Computed example of a mutant assay.
Amino acid sequence: MDLPLVVGVDGSEPSLRAVDWAADEAALHGVPLRVVYASLWERYEGGSLSADLGKPSEEVLAEDVVEHAARRALARRPDVKVTPVVLPEEPEYTLVHEGRTASAVVVGSRGRSGIAEFLLGSVGLSVAAQADCPVIVLRGSHDKQAVPGTHGRILLGVGEDPEETPAVRFAVDEARRRGVPLEAVRAWRCPAHETTDHPLMAGEPARLHEERAVKALEGALTGVPADADVRRRTVEGHARKVLADLSHEADLLVVGAKRREGHFGMQLGRVAHALLHHSACPVAVVPQKVRAQ
């Protein structure tokens, strides 16, 4: 049985754009779509959806929100099985719980809180930091669609793991399904204390760090099928800045997040945290379980 794709909605325009993107993604993977509205408030507080329904916002109920979103998904992708769900719970808890039996969770960059578009809302951040499945946060200008993409490529941030990770497998699969190349990027830096003013040694420390980055990149991609269109790239600089800059030319940015056994609460990492706030394209955070040391 195929695990469904889950999209969280709250009636806001960003969440409705997430529904469009999620419908495309569900069709791409051939999986059902669960449209989930979770709130401890029965009534909707906002203007965009109430205008669509022709009702004052104080008369729009949770059922209106989720049914409108489900109809929108079906109108976009009639071939996708769509199930609307209303749960009287905190959205962070609900979406993390839903993620335990989902192929992925999709959320908008912000909701009804009115937080500026360039900052990620608390729900998306919390779900990305705790879910057991990949979480896709719809940042940037994604034109409300997963396919066809504007830039025609998937971007993967490669970390320090010496072998293939769930994030690598996820990125390869997403690129192959879309029929676009995957650009795997490993950022590297030469610490200031390793530089030297001697003319014969000026480039040596940097060269060694770049060689290590190339080796780490090759190790991470060892298990990638030979016929996959993967382009390798090493870039000097902070990973969060390098990837944020490159995200302007990508349709999806994929990064990993380690989940240590026995640890509770938010486990995200500085790079993923920064990209969820500053990426110019949607970000997929893929969890990786690691044993506590």
Rank of each mutant, 00 (worst) to 15 (best):
D2C: 03
L3M: 09
V6L: 08
G8E: 09
V9F: 11
V9Y: 02
S15Y: 04
A22H: 00
A27N: 02
V35Y: 13
L49C: 12
L49H: 04
L49G: 06
D52S: 09
S57C: 12
E59V: 01
V60Y: 12
A62Y: 00
E63D: 14
V66L: 08
E67Y: 01
L74R: 09
V80A: 02
P88I: 02
G99K: 06
A104V: 04
V106H: 03
V107A: 02
V107W: 03
V107R: 02
R112I: 06
G114K: 01
L119R: 07
L119A: 08
S122F: 07
A129P: 06
A129S: 15
D132G: 15
H142W: 10
D143L: 11
Q145H: 13
Q145Y: 07
V147H: 13
R153K: 15
R153H: 12
G159H: 04
D161L: 10
P166F: 08
P166V: 13
P166Y: 12
V168F: 01
V172Q: 04
D173F: 00
E174K: 05
R189S: 14
C190D: 14
E194F: 15
T195H: 11
H198K: 15
L208M: 07
H209Q: 11
A213R: 04
L217K: 07
E218W: 02
G219A: 12
V224L: 09
P225R: 01
D227V: 00
V230D: 06
T234E: 05
V235E: 15
G237M: 08
H238G: 05
K241W: 10
V242Q: 04
E249K: 12
V254Y: 07
V254H: 08
K258T: 15
K258S: 09
G262Y: 02
H263S: 11
H263V: 13
F264E: 12
G265Y: 07
Q267K: 04
G269N: 01
H273W: 10
L275K: 01
L276F: 15
L276M: 08
H277R: 04
K289F: 10
V290S: 10
R291H: 13
